[in-house]
Nucleic acid binder design. Structure first.
Length: 520
RNA sequence: GAUCCCGUAGCUCAGCUGGUAGAGCAUUUGACUUUUAAUCAAAGGGCCGUAGGUUCGAGUCCUACCGGGAUCACCA
């Protein structure tokens, strides 16, 4: 027996793990586990074997086992991470956790050849168990082990959360890993210890899968376009810059897919979509991560009216597929994604909410109304942005149920087609849900002369110091000169959609690995 | 970028107007062949985020910095 009490030397704070290959100081638990590892090897046990033929998930057994069908479960093999151990001398119970949940295992010295080995196992180790299923006298469905195999010796301790129920059946969690920084930095630990957060990410995956299926069924093609771009475009945002050594040129990480996808419509595809990471070099907060996922789709021969109907179908489909209903609970609200959604123009929505008709007003008049409404304005912004500010302050927070806001000022929408009947506006809509924007779409501007003029206006803004204004992309303009058919385009912020459908208020809770400052 | 709050054992946290660092769980040793927050007995474990300062004396007070969280600003 090793004398494990002799190790009371250096300890290391749990959160200060460095990436260096050599750990300078091991705490007592880490030292002990290394000694156990050596002892296991000395006993001839391979602590890192190659495979284990498991037959069941924990949930399969718990769902299907009944006392009168016990013979069906005479020979099961389960595997997972040890999460709790109760040793009673010559017999022990422990729980293992697999992808689907937890199940209890019972081992007895009489039944297991390597019972002695078990004293060298720890919480966190991964084991395989072969045996039969039974119900303990306390009523818990349990695997009675005939064979116990170590599959992975864990060298670093994991925080142990214990869950109990009070007399009312309310679950209480003790000693959970609650520190958000640790949870984000070591998401693998978070997933082990707070296994319910897995559900958010499973749902995220299903949302994206449902979207793909919806598009694929309609014959639209999933495509990939460059992440590294010589000229960035398609949105108003600051980019990340990187450098290609062989070409000796700076490249930008994409801020949007838009301009490349439209090139593909020029090339003859009639429906293309892309689900991809975009990168914006801006602030981080509850709703912004520097890299985020968006879905953009472009369909030829359609306009934004068609696109609104498509979005209604899409979100009805996705919510039904993923949640089984179009009614989505979010906090106190129940949001209905059943079609149709309300459609109202931006100016109409402002008039409805404030009583002010902003049609045809000049900048001075708009500023007067803004200050009357208590909306603070940057003195540099023009008429279009003033309208947007008024909208954002007075209308947007009230848009809880899905609402299409249509017909945005032309200055804010350099890639959208001018409105067919409303001067100064574009055929653009955004979909607002629960006070936030989750989709943005337009009838795409395909007049190459007008597009050039609009991009040159952006360039002028840029020259005056607006570093988010767009850059003139000559190749994109050339593509438009070749000819883009009438096209409707849509972008959906996937992370925000996932937040909405998983009842999360922080983007960090729908990203496995949110951006963090480097750990020191 | 601004403001506020937080940083004490592996985890969750207590530590009052400054006076020798605490609890529960986890860990170690012993007992225990149907336990389940297992139980019972004993034990080990702290650069009190970092660096200065005030003080006879700082986990506690002051300053700066680092890290985190929240709110606001920015960001379609």
């Amino acid at each position: 027996m090793l004398s494990r009490q002799e190790h009371c030397g250096g300890t290391r704070h749990f959160s200060q793990k460095s990436n260096s290959p050599m750990k300078e100081h091991l705490n007592d638990q880490e030292l002990r586990r290394r000694e156990e590892l050596a002892e296991l090897r000395h006993m001839g046990v391979e602590p890192y074997p190659y495979a284990f033929p498991k037959t069941h998930h924990s949930s399969d057994i718990l769902a299907q086992f009944a006392d009168d069908n016990a013979e069906v479960f005479q020979d099961v093999a389960v595997a997972g991470r040890i999460m709790a151990v109760r040793r009673m001398g010559k017999a022990s119970f422990f729980h293992i956790q697999d992808e689907a949940g937890r199940i209890q295992v019972y081992i007895r010295k009489d039944d297991i050849a390597n019972y002695e080995e078990f004293r060298l196992y720890d919480i966190g180790d991964i084991v395989g168990v072969r045996g039969f299923v039974f119900r303990t006298k306390m009523g818990e469905i349990t695997v009675h082990a005939r064979e116990l195999v170590l599959l992975c010796k864990s060298l670093a301790p994991i925080p142990i959360a214990k869950e109990t129920e009070d007399e009312h059946g309310n679950k209480m969690v003790h000693d959970a890993l609650a520190d958000k920084e640790l949870r984000y930095r070591q998401r693998y630990l978070d997933l082990i210890v707070n296994s319910h957060i897995r559900d958010t990410f499973v749902r995220r995956s299903r949302i994206i899968t449902a979207m793909r299926r919806f598009f694929d069924e309609r014959g639209w093609l999933e495509v990939e376009t460059p992440v590294l771009q010589p000229i960035y475009g398609g949105a108003a945002a600051r980019p990340f810059v990187t450098h290609h050594n062989a070409l000796d040129v700076d490249l930008y990480l994409r801020i949007a897919d838009e301009l490349y996808l439209k090139r593909l419509i020029v090339g003859g595809f009639e429906g293309v979509y892309e689900i991809s990471k975009n990168f914006r070099n801006e602030g981080m907060d509850r709703t912004h991560n520097p890299e985020f996922t968006s879905m953009e789709i472009y369909v030829a021969y359609k306009d934004y009216n068609w696109m609104m109907s498509m979005v209604e179908e899409l979100f009805s489909y996705v919510t039904t597929q993923v949640l089984g209903t179009t009614d989505v609970k979010f906090g106190e609200e129940v949001i209905s994604f059943a079609a149709p959604y309300r459609r109202i123009s931006m100016l109409g929505a402002i008039q409805e909410r404030t009583g002010h008709d902003l049609h045809g007003l000049d900048e001075a008049e708009l500023r007067r109304i803004a200050s009357e409404l208590g909306v603070e304005l940057d003195p540099k912004i023009g008429a279009g942005k003033i309208i947007d500010e008024i909208f954002t302050e007075t209308v947007q927070p009230h848009l809880i149920q899905p609402t299409f806001i249509t017909d945005y000022p032309i200055e804010m929408s350099p890639l959208a087609k001018s409105h067919r009947s409303e001067p100064g506006l574009t055929e653009r809509f955004e979909l607002f849900v629960n006070g936030g924007e989750i989709a943005n779409a337009f009838s795409e501007l395909n007049d190459p002369v007008e597009q050039r003029r609009r991009l040159e206006e952006q360039a002028a803004l840029r020259a005056r110091g607006d570093d988010e204004a767009m850059v003139v992309d000559e190749d994109f303009l050339h593509a438009l000169e070749i000819g883009l058919p009438p096209t409707a385009g849509l972008g959906v912020g996937i992370d925000r959609l996932v937040m909405l459908l998983t009842e999360q208020v922080s983007i960090r809770d729908v990203l496995f690995f949110p951006q963090m400052k480097p750990d020191k």
